[in-house]
Simulated assay, not measured.
Amino acid sequence: MKTAVTDGVFPGGVLLVSQKREILFHEAYGKADIFSGSQIMVNTVFDLASLTKPLATTLAVMKLEEQHKLTLEQTLGEIIDRFRGRETAGITVRQLLSHTSGLPAYKPYFERIRSIPEHNRKKEFRELLVREELINPAGQKTLYSDIGFMMLCWIVETVSGKRLDHFVRDEIYEPSSLQELFFVDLMEQKVQETPGQFAATEKCPWRKKVITGEVHDDNAFIVGGIDGHAGLFGTAREVGRLLLMLQGLFHGHPENGILAPKTIRKYFTKYKGDARVLGFDTPDPVDSSCGHYFSPKTIGHLGFTGTSFWMDLEKEVNVILLTNRIHPTRENVRIRAFRPIIHDMVMKNI
């Protein structure tokens, strides 16, 4: 980790390793902000980027299914009236979670709506979702899609009657005493940060500042900081506590009863040949970012800002790597080569 900072892989980061219930390693390295010089601490808050998908949106869907308010086979058209009669109406919740919806990977919606008043942006943003077209027939191909998780956010909010951040706070995080996992609501709150509290991300050309304490993802930013594909912030410690809870549930330990073990096992198991489990990623068969030593029963996810976690359900090992690799620019992609190296080093020394 020290070498990675010195070599410019990222300005700073936190590495946390746990096995069973024990934290084996939890250390911080480098700078939270290269311009202010503030240091990364073990309790520095990171923009978790796409870790939002498994650690917020997917958990929300799990909870709604347990509450008998939603099923995996329900379709967009059945849940949200605006999709009825559209090409996308038949996409199921399962297909959205497994990235087999046939939707495109990404669209820069923010470019089309950043010039309109803030209070109208979310409505217009969702009109763009309604008008989105398939690029593959639903259910036939796996293509990782931000857009699918934007639609899942809308589903969660429609079914629960609450905004996504409020639902996961009330149903998952607060009952689990997870106070360091949260969304930053840009429409209502201005974060009062102390130096180094948040790891800085990119120097944004159109926001004209170094982004700190607000979501980096442009599409999430334009709708106020909260969406299903990005927007979650957190510390390595709190991500680790959540993973330990999920791992315990998978192995049949009810913990605090927030989710049932059978629900966790269903979502953490591949379905009928799907390339991914529901809402989470699995290691690539070749050149995986988690290296060579995790078992086949491993799930995890990567985040664009330089974040990741891998959870080996067989060995009961969790590795959480949170960095600010896009600070000050996303052009720095050295983390791609670094990730398997650090994971191999961890696994060989456990």
Results as ranks from 00 to 15, higher is better:
35 F>L: 15
48 L>E: 09
323 T>E: 07
97 L>C: 02
94 R>E: 14
38 S>V: 02
308 S>D: 01
299 I>V: 12
221 F>I: 03
27 E>Y: 04
178 L>G: 07
9 V>P: 09
89 A>D: 12
225 G>F: 10
144 Y>I: 00
240 G>S: 05
117 P>E: 09
324 N>A: 00
189 Q>A: 13
231 G>M: 13
278 L>T: 06
155 I>C: 00
49 A>F: 01
209 K>H: 13
206 W>S: 11
139 G>L: 00
286 V>S: 02
218 D>C: 10
318 N>C: 13
309 F>A: 01
86 R>D: 01
287 D>V: 00
341 I>A: 12
37 G>A: 02
219 N>G: 05
133 E>I: 04
160 S>W: 01
176 S>C: 14
200 A>L: 09
176 S>T: 10
231 G>A: 10
73 E>W: 14
280 F>R: 03
237 R>G: 08
13 G>W: 06
156 V>A: 12
314 E>N: 14
220 A>L: 02
25 F>A: 03
163 R>Q: 14
74 Q>P: 06
35 F>A: 14
98 S>V: 04
305 T>N: 02
85 G>Q: 03
120 N>H: 13
69 K>V: 00
241 R>W: 03
140 Q>A: 02
129 L>T: 07
122 K>Y: 11
5 V>P: 14
54 P>I: 00
40 I>A: 03
236 A>T: 11
36 S>W: 06
274 D>L: 10
212 T>M: 04
199 A>T: 10
83 F>V: 08
118 E>T: 13
171 E>Q: 14
19 Q>K: 15
291 G>K: 00
311 M>E: 03
297 K>Q: 14
53 K>Y: 11
181 L>D: 11
350 I>L: 15
62 M>S: 04
104 P>M: 05
247 Q>C: 12
132 E>Q: 15
318 N>K: 05
217 D>V: 02
191 V>D: 00
3 T>A: 10
34 I>Y: 00
206 W>N: 09
80 I>D: 12
35 F>T: 12
93 V>P: 11
227 D>E: 10
126 R>I: 03
206 W>F: 15
101 S>L: 09
248 G>L: 04
344 D>S: 03
330 R>C: 09
113 I>Y: 06
261 P>M: 13
21 R>A: 10
242 L>V: 01
307 T>Q: 05
51 L>R: 08
29 Y>V: 07
280 F>G: 04
11 P>Y: 09
233 F>L: 11
55 L>T: 03
263 T>C: 05
286 V>H: 06
334 R>K: 14
215 V>Y: 02
10 F>P: 08
283 P>R: 01
331 E>L: 15
22 E>Y: 07
336 R>F: 12
